[in-house]
Design a protein around this nucleic acid. Structure first.
Length: 465
RNA sequence: GGCGGCUUAGCCAAGUGGGAAGGCAGAGGUCUGCAAAACCUCCAUUCUCCGGUUCAAAUCCGGAAGCCGCCUCCA
């Protein structure tokens, strides 16, 4: 099967193709750094991470851009509230964001462009839209004239003529020719304080949408392969990006628009506005494993709403533990004859894994395939019907899969001396048939987060998740 | 009101015309000093409901119910 993705633009699965042979250029809408990101936000980044990793698995050279929005109403408001410069305010959340990405084992993007570092690029884009008659100025602000772009609404499939001023329309809307027009450049306002740029398009700051057009085209070209984001961005953000970009360049902007559904909490979308969110930090502080959180976020198909529960997180942790045990058990396979069945299983599994992911990145199904492998191989291990070389082949396979899933990497476990001594003492106790003492030590170690298992291959220990 | 999506076991979750994947939880068994891990067995005659099309429907069509999202700065 050929790789295909569901494209929001056509609302269909389409066979994937690239503009430049063997190379994928993708832009992912990133965070606004006004606060700690919540795990709903991270669903989007885990999704793009798996997407990017799978493209690399398939042999594509991937250039991934993930922007950081560091100037908008919320960041300005937040910095003023704390009485610190905007840059200082956003820096804190930016750093936190990168730490969180790393906790979730999300691979770094190639560039993390910040809006405030690309004002001149946006200025040039706005100017070009003015020159072409797609934008107009009013009271210091510059707006995009939607009526000049007939394709407007194509991505979200919305009929803009039906848009009416409603509860969520801001007070300055009367300054626009039509309500649906949107700000490219916002003229300076007292509320902005010292946040402004003196540019040829006036004194002020960029509108939200323009940064993504300017920065994506700067790093990826006028026309690139993939653009991702949460479904909430389809309208108006991505619709506006298309309008700005294509009106300015006259070229198609993006071939594939991929959107992830929301993370829900008790049936409602997780969001800052709703107060029903958990930051990654909240969960880590409660002792949850970040990779279990990653597992939870990636195990449901990205176009499916995912209801977050602590039971679900617990189940993810246990599922992950099964994979860890599987890998650990393979590592200690010693003797045994080569079994030709192993090659068959590997080939069947590889096929299944790739077929699943080729089909619009169906991670759930791919995981099902991996667990079938676990069962098949464990059976051979149980029957001692597998060689060390076979086991290594399977481990290689798992590593290949994990280059996509990113869930197997664990911190190197180092036992401190005290614990090693306890383990030794317990071994002695067992030799002496002093099981009471042995069991007590095992219990004590478990309280310290070390789980001991007595196996025919000797004592195994692992960190409690 | 407009547009779109979802409903599969105790929980989570794949599956778009012909076998109901997988995970978690649970039950019994093998192994073990005991555990754990692993293995074996069991765990949806049925996919929200009602009609229809078809030799055949979780899947296609029509209707109903419930839930969710977007409709101007939200991942």
């Amino acid at each position: 099967m050929a790789l295909q993705f569901f494209n929001t633009l056509t609302r269909r699965k389409e066979e994937f193709y690239t503009i430049h042979p063997g190379e994928v250029r993708m832009y992912c809408c990133g965070p606004t750094v006004y606060d700690f990101a919540h795990i709903g936000n991270f669903r989007a980044y885990v999704f793009t991470d798996v997407l990017r990793r799978y493209l690399q698995y398939k042999g594509y050279k991937v250039t991934q851009i993930l922007n950081v929005t560091d100037v908008d109403d919320r960041t300005i408001g937040g910095s003023q509230k704390q009485g610190i410069p905007l840059g200082e305010y956003t820096e804190k959340y930016k750093q936190a964001f990168f730490e969180d990405l790393s906790s979730l084992n999300i691979k770094p993007a190639d560039v993390y462009p910040e809006a405030t570092a690309h004002i001149t690029d946006m200025e040039a884009l706005v100017k070009s839209l003015m020159d072409k008659g797609h934008a107009y100025e009013n009271k210091g602000s510059i707006y995009f004239r939607i009526s000049s772009f007939p394709e407007y609404g194509k991505l979200s499939h919305m009929d803009i003529s039906g848009l009416k001023a409603g509860a969520r329309v801001a007070a300055d809307e009367y300054e626009k020719e039509e309500v649906a027009d949107f700000a490219l450049w916002k003229g300076w306002d007292e509320k902005d304080g010292d946040v402004f740029w003196e540019t040829e398009v006036g004194k002020g700051r960029p509108g939200w949408h323009i940064e993504c057009s300017a920065m994506s085209m700067k790093y990826l070209g006028k026309h690139f392969d993939i653009h991702t984001g949460g479904v909430d961005l389809i309208f108006p953000h991505h619709e506006n990006e298309i309008a700005q970009s294509q009106a300015a360049t006259g070229e198609k902007f993006v071939n594939f628009w991929l959107h992830n559904e929301h993370l829900m909490v008790e049936g409602k979308r997780m969001g800052k506005r709703f107060g029903n969110y958990y930051t990654l930090r909240d969960l880590l502080n409660k002792g949850y494993n970040p990779i279990a959180i990653r597992y939870l976020l990636l195990a449901t198909h990205h176009r499916q709403q995912l209801n977050f529960t602590f039971d679900g997180l617990e189940a993810s942790k246990n599922a992950l533990q099964r994979l860890y045990d599987f890998v650990d058990n393979l590592k200690i396979v010693k003797e045994g004859k080569n079994n030709p069945q192993v090659d068959e299983i590997i080939s069947k599994t590889t096929q299944g894994f790739e077929d699943a992911l080729d089909d619009d990145l169906n991670v759930s199904e791919a995981l099902g395939v991996v667990f079938n492998l676990v069962k098949d191989i464990n059976r051979l291990v149980e029957d001692k019907n597998i060689s060390k070389a076979d086991a290594e082949k399977v481990l290689n396979l798992m590593n290949g899969f994990d280059s996509v899933l990113g869930i197997l990497k664990r911190e190197e476990l180092v036992l401190d001396e005290q614990i090693s001594k306890l383990i030794e003492r317990r071994s002695k106790a067992r030799e002496d048939k002093d099981f009471k003492l042995a069991d007590q030590i095992r219990k004590d170690l478990e309280a310290k987060g070390i789980i001991l298992e007595d196996t025919p291959q000797g004592i195994k220990w692992k960190r409690k998740m």
